[in-house]
Design a protein around this nucleic acid. Structure first.
Length: 213
DNA sequence: CAGTCGATTCACT
DNA sequence: GTGAATCGACTGA
């Protein structure tokens, strides 16, 4: 039997720590997406840490741009980017303002509003696939650039909110190389997931795409 | 200002 | 297991 998840919002101080501390600590937490049709909530099971300016794998590595500006702002805010011409992925900004670190939310278990998530994820063959992968998670929660820069750590009126949930014990946390990260950034084992959780996405090494004809 | 390619997913073999 | 889809940010000339 599992204790009822704690729905207390995570305070901003939670995110005002080194990203490698925050990332594994996010496992088991609950992200709530408020939609006009009702809430969609996900229990986080897989994340990746991106260590700002020091990290070749990070969007912030080459400095601030229009796209990644939110990463350089306050912790606890949402950074959403658009990729491959069709998908969105979402992050939570970590560390003191200016650090430009963030945690990519890679997968989770939909624990509330599954019927809403299913409508957005028609290709999912079962509920474990609803948020298995970063773009799938963003799609299931109806997240796109409109939510970029919003605050997940306020009790005010925001589209996304991060709650305490039921943090997993450290013996349940596994880590390994980040998925899809190429070059120097690939050496860091900064992907964290919940051991044996069926909603964790399969690992894929980075594959450079062939030039179009 | 054109070329390149991505913190991916899906259909198909 | 392989390759296509699709577009905008970034790079370098």
């Amino acid at each position: 039997m599992i204790a009822t998840p704690d729905r207390t919002p995570l305070p901003r101080e939670f995110f005002d720590r080194p990203v490698l501390e925050v990332a594994p600590d996010l496992l088991g937490r609950i992200l709530v997406r408020t939609t006009p049709d009702g809430p969609i909530s996900v229990r986080l099971t897989e994340v990746e840490a991106y260590d700002g300016q020091n990290d070749p794998g990070s969007h912030a590595y080459r400095g601030r741009t229009a796209r990644n500006a939110v990463m350089f702002g306050r912790p606890g805010h949402v950074y959403v980017y658009f990729t491959y011409g069709m998908w969105h992925c979402m992050n939570l900004v970590c560390g003191p303002e200016g650090t430009a670190s963030a945690v990519l939310l890679r997968a989770g278990e939909i624990i509330e509003g599954a019927e809403l998530a299913r409508k957005r994820r028609l290709s999912a063959r079962n509920d474990k696939e609803l948020a298995k992968g970063p773009a799938r998670l963003a799609t299931a929660l109806d997240v796109d650039r409109a939510q970029d820069g919003t605050d997940a750590c306020t009790r005010g009126d925001t589209p996304l909110r991060i709650l305490t949930g039921t943090p997993v014990t450290s013996d349940q946390v596994r880590n390994g190389p980040r998925t899809g990260v190429s070059g120097e950034g690939a050496v860091h084992p900064w992907r964290f997931w919940v051991a044996d959780d069926p909603t964790v996405s399969p690992y894929r090494a980075h594959v450079p795409r062939r030039r179009r004809t």
